[in-house]
Amino acid sequence: MTCRELTSFIADYLAGELQADTRVAFERHLSRCPNCVQYVADYRRAVDLGQRVYAHDEEPVTDVPDDLVAAILAARGGKFAPD
C-alpha cells in the first residue's frame, strides 16, 4: 500500500469499516511510515477538534437581537394570527 492509497482509506479505517486484509495492509504501512502516522494523527485531531469546538458549552451564543425577535413575532402575527 502506498501513502496515496493509505490516505484514501483513512476515513473508513477510523470508522472501523475497512475489510480485514486492507486494514492489515494499512497498519503495516503505518508501522514503517512515520510521515503517514503524522498525517493520520493530524486528520484525527482535525475531526476531534471540529467536534469539540461545537460541543454545547464551547460555542459563543448571543441573545437574539430585539429587532429580530420583533420581526419573527410580527411575521407570525401578520400571516397566522387568528385575527
Partner: peptide
C-alpha cells in the same frame, strides 16, 4: 503525491494536542 505514491510533504509533529488547543 509523487508518482510513486509517496507524500510530497513531510508532516512534522506540530505538537499541540487537542486538549491544549481547547
Amino acid at each position: 503525491f509523487q508518482e510513486d505514491g509517496h507524500h510530497v510533504e513531510q508532516f512534522s509533529d506540530w505538537a499541540a494536542p487537542a486538549d491544549v488547543i481547547m
